[in-house]
Design a protein around this nucleic acid. Structure first.
Length: 498
RNA sequence: GGUCCUGUGGCCGAGUGGCUAGGCAGAGCUCUGCAAAAGCUCCUACACCAGUUCGAAUCUGGUCGGGACCUCCA
């Protein structure tokens, strides 16, 4: 089998992946800020890294996957802010930060479950690691790379850049950063505009605040990831992932902090997913083009013609390489929906075919070698920087073979016992275990199965007597209920829920 | 303005210098009581201009277009 190669953002090239401790992989992925609802854009990194997590595990690694919850910072809930300003005094009418955080954390977990993502090994919260963050800031101050002003602490980028490569990851040039003339609030405290906050002084009315050696305040954005990654994965770990928009300043700053604190570069492989765009534009609050996940699942959004199943979104994302932008549209999602159905139906049909029907020798040598090659390429493509799109393309090339076997226009014995087994095993591993796809039909209970079998039997009898009025009645009325009944070759019938 | 990415058929998208993925949509045929599904076949594109090469969607330079980051945005 070929070696796994990953594109490393910091070296800008594909490198052979080798973990620090053989057989073990430490992976940190920047998690959500739970001050609002997740949208389609958020789905991309979590699905991408879920597949990476699953694949690394499949390769035999014990993976510790850490994904944080950013629940500290300056939070305001939309709509409730105004309410607060009317200065209601009652406790219950005021914004309670933890209530807000809990609400969106729950919603996030629910959405991730819908996508069938595996929960991370550790999901630390920023508020649960204030102590670690303060310790880290202290160390940086002691090392002389941070300074305190009015209860806030800033990282001294200029000093760091004198001996380290600040900007290496993001391709930023330190001189340009130092020259930036942008005027923002609170900037006057900093020695230099490029400096970033490690700790921020909080005004008394600020809703989230903790005691620190520098007074009451809250941690800077970047330090939380550094502190939690260090705590759970060590001073140096294998993979750090996140969206490309986090390259700068977030990840660049993480490198600086951790390097000063732990005297080593924190991350071996930086992996960044690209953005989901809508009409060519990144999906984001500031562009006013956000489609929330709840809206996507319900279809309740002006841009959506209908509701889309979470699995459709997952498949949609896997059809593209993770480092390419992915353009959203109704049409594209509709295409994914149909494509997924075609793949899933074939996958289910494959599972029902009997391996005993094949022999040691293949009766169709050409098909045998074609199918074998297509299946064996799964690993090769995935090892090439997780090319899920190419694996799926190969699967689709096999779909007609499976469907023909089901229709008996190609005998199962066209393939050798060995290759047929390979096909069945690998489809299961790749479709379910690695790509994490699952059935779109939620109703799979045995009573319904029984009722359907009864209707199918009655319809078969009617058809046998050429009583098409009855047979059509059954099929049409079921269709009205959203159950599609199909006649198959040989008189069998199959059904699924639309 | 600075740094970087990108431009593929009606749509979404893979693409490692030659063998020109895949999905969806569209057309025809087969199967079929009808329908649906399925199978087979067709539609063969790489923004533009120059260059390198026997050969370029792929490499180089330029032009034009789109985008990301430089704002606590995945």
């Amino acid at each position: 089998m070929s070696q796994l190669k990953v594109y490393n953002s910091i070296t800008r090239q594909k490198e052979v992946f080798k973990s620090i401790t053989p057989g073990h992989v430490g992976m940190y992925v920047c998690g959500p800020t739970v001050s609002g609802e997740s949208h389609l854009g958020h789905a991309r990194p979590y699905i991408t890294f879920d597949v990476i997590y699953r694949y690394l595990t499949f390769l035999g690694n014990k993976v510790r996957y850490v994904r944080n919850i950013t629940d500290a910072g300056h939070f305001e809930e939309e709509g409730r802010e105004a309410e607060d300003k009317i200065s209601k005094k009652a406790v219950l009418e005021k914004l309670e930060p933890m209530e807000l955080v809990q609400k969106y954390t729950n919603l996030f977990h629910w959405a991730m479950a819908q996508f069938n993502t595996i929960p991370p090994s550790i999901e630390p919260t920023a508020t649960g690691h204030i102590v670690e963050q303060i310790e880290m800031i202290k160390k940086i101050i002691e090392a002389g790379y941070a300074y305190e002003v009015n209860g806030s602490v800033y990282f001294d980028v200029k000093k760091y850049a004198a001996s380290h490569k600040y900007g290496k990851l993001s391709g930023r040039i330190i001189e340009d950063l130092l020259e930036t003339t942008r005027e923002l609030e609170g900037q006057e405290e900093k020695r230099d505009t490029a400096d970033f906050a490690l700790w921020k002084n909080a005004a008394p009315e600020h809703i989230m605040r903790w005691q620190s050696p520098w007074g009451a305040g809250f941690p800077g954005w970047h330090i939380e990831c550094s502190a939690m990654a260090t705590k759970y994965l060590g001073a140096q770990f294998d993979i750090h992932g996140g969206g490309m928009d986090l390259l700068f300043p977030h990840h660049e700053s993480e490198i600086a902090q951790s390097t000063i604190c732990n005297h080593t570069a924190p991350v071996r492989y930086w992996i960044h997913n690209n953005m989901i765009t809508i009409n060519g534009r990144k999906m984001g609050k500031s562009y006013n083009n956000v489609i929330k996940l709840t809206e996507l699942f319900s279809g309740d959004h002006p841009l959506l013609e209908k509701a889309f199943h979470p699995m459709t979104i997952r498949f949609f994302i896997l059809q593209t390489h993770y480092r390419s932008t992915l353009d959203f549209s109704n049409e594209a999602l509709l295409a994914s929906e149909k494509g997924l159905k075609r793949l899933w139906d074939a996958y289910e049909n494959l599972g029902k075919l009997k391996q005993e029907d094949s022999l040691q020798e293949a009766s169709d040598a050409g098909l045998e070698s074609k199918v074998k090659k297509l299946v064996e390429e799964f690993d090769e493509f995935m090892n090439d920087d997780f090319s899920t799109a190419k694996v799926l393309a190969n699967m689709f090339e096999i779909v007609p073979v499976i469907n023909s076997m089901k229709d008996k226009t190609i005998p199962v014995s066209a393939l050798s016992k060995q290759t047929f087994g390979l096909l069945q095993r690998n489809f299961k591993i790749w479709v379910e275990d690695i790509f994490g796809l699952k059935s779109v039909n939620e109703a799979d209970n045995s009573k319904l199965q029984g009722v359907m079998q009864l209707l199918i039997d009655i319809r078969k009898e009617a058809k046998g007597k050429k009583d098409f009025v009855t047979s059509d009645k059954i099929r049409n009325q079921l269709a009205q209920l959203g159950i599609i009944l199909k006649d198959e070759k040989g008189g069998d019938m199959s059904w699924n829920i639309d």
